[in-house]
Design a binder for these strands. Sequence first.
DNA 1: GCTAATAGGCGGT
DNA 2: ACCGCCTATTAGC
Length: 166
Amino acid sequence: MACGWSKYSLGGKVFYIVAIGDGRLEELLLREESSPDCAGDDNMMKVAELARRWILEGNVSAVDIGPNATPFQRKVYEAISKIPKGSVSTYSSVAKAIGCKGSRAVGQALKKNSIPLFIPCHRVVRKDGSLGGFECGPDIKEQILRKEGIRITNGKVDPSQIIYDL
DNA sequence: GCTAATAGGCGGT
DNA sequence: ACCGCCTATTAGC
């Protein structure tokens, strides 16, 4: 399995953006260690570097959406890929945008997301501004959002930065 | 098929 | 702030 990584400093800690794939991008993860058991592959190293720059600079280049996604998950991913850097939206807003009534289902889909960071699941928060969950931990979510220019006080996002209508 | 488990939301306390 | 009940989707049985 091809693999690449890119160093990324977050809140004084060093993380590795780990890209794992097989010919095409399949998985992109944030880890506290690089994966020692898989050798660096040129292509995946580029993917990881691209991801790092995407986080730091917000430049999105089109990336394949997870190949194993269900139709519902695809709809969720497509909807949230429209959220620009510097803004966030809410689980219920995403649900409404794709014509689904249950906001929990959106969270479900994001959790299953195989390529976080590129699919900006960190930009989806609760309606009341609290952060909600994140696979790599809520503190990581907060730090990534701060890096993107989101103001967070008392654990809540500044309402003026929340897009309620997608 | 049914059941339990969610990265949510809402209304009543 | 807590609690209960609603919701949609998925994984496991």
